[in-house]
Write a protein that binds this DNA or RNA. Sequence first.
DNA 1: CGGTGGCTTTCACAGATTTTTCACGGCCGG
DNA 2: CCGGCCGTGAAAAATCTGTGAAAGCCACCG
Lengths: 124, 124
Amino acid sequence: MAAFPESPDVPADTLYAGELEIRAEEGLVLATGRPLTLSVREFELLVAMVKRLGAIITREELYRTVWGGELRAGDRSVDVYVSKLRSKLEAALPDRRFIHTHPGFGYRFQPQPSRNVHMEAARG
Amino acid sequence: MAAFPESPDVPADTLYAGELEIRAEEGLVLATGRPLTLSVREFELLVAMVKRLGAIITREELYRTVWGGELRAGDRSVDVYVSKLRSKLEAALPDRRFIHTHPGFGYRFQPQPSRNVHMEAARG
DNA sequence: CGGTGGCTTTCACAGATTTTTCACGGCCGG
DNA sequence: CCGGCCGTGAAAAATCTGTGAAAGCCACCG
């Protein structure tokens, strides 16, 4: 059993970014409270980026952190997974952009309100 | 006169999750008032998951909690019992999903209304 | 005892998902 | 037009899950 009481609602190892809540311990990501289904790579990539919120991170560094090892020339794994991750994040939170590309340098993670889009676009 | 709780550490040994009522003391589970017939393993697996509602729980942890001991490589016991449990829960409450799989991470228990929730708004 | 039935553990295989690779197409500066 | 960079759909390869079924246990019963 646990050595000391813990609060299930506020895990120590939880990251926040915009409407995202990332529970690094258990591999769970909540977008506005709703759980996202991310694969292991997607999740670790997200964690790696959020841990350096606002900073530009090179593909080499992302690869070392998430895949472990050196990025080989021509390997597009990072790009592919950034694409997948973007896709899921945008599906969950259409009005925000999270991952920004800095051509020639790498990627930067930063939640950014796109516009004052706050109304349901449910018009016929 | 035994009208008081056995243990002061356990405020209430009855758990609730959606339409489920789980009486840990009696080993009884009611689905919308109707009793379910669960085996010991199934019951303890259910309790272990409900106690961490909404969280992703690894197979290793479930095994330690329910079976007691370390999960050996290749042991599929947890999967098999998750399958059995799902089967009985769905038989009792067809319109709800309880156990969600997070490939690569584990399982998450969370009662979820099953309206028309399966739209892939994947526009090309 | 031998048979019966429920529960648990193991095994095996099909199907589902994820990860890795490729390749084509769009952008942009020269 | 060319070449470097990037976004991504898709095929191929690798892993992970769901589950029926066989096999082992054990309590119970005629």
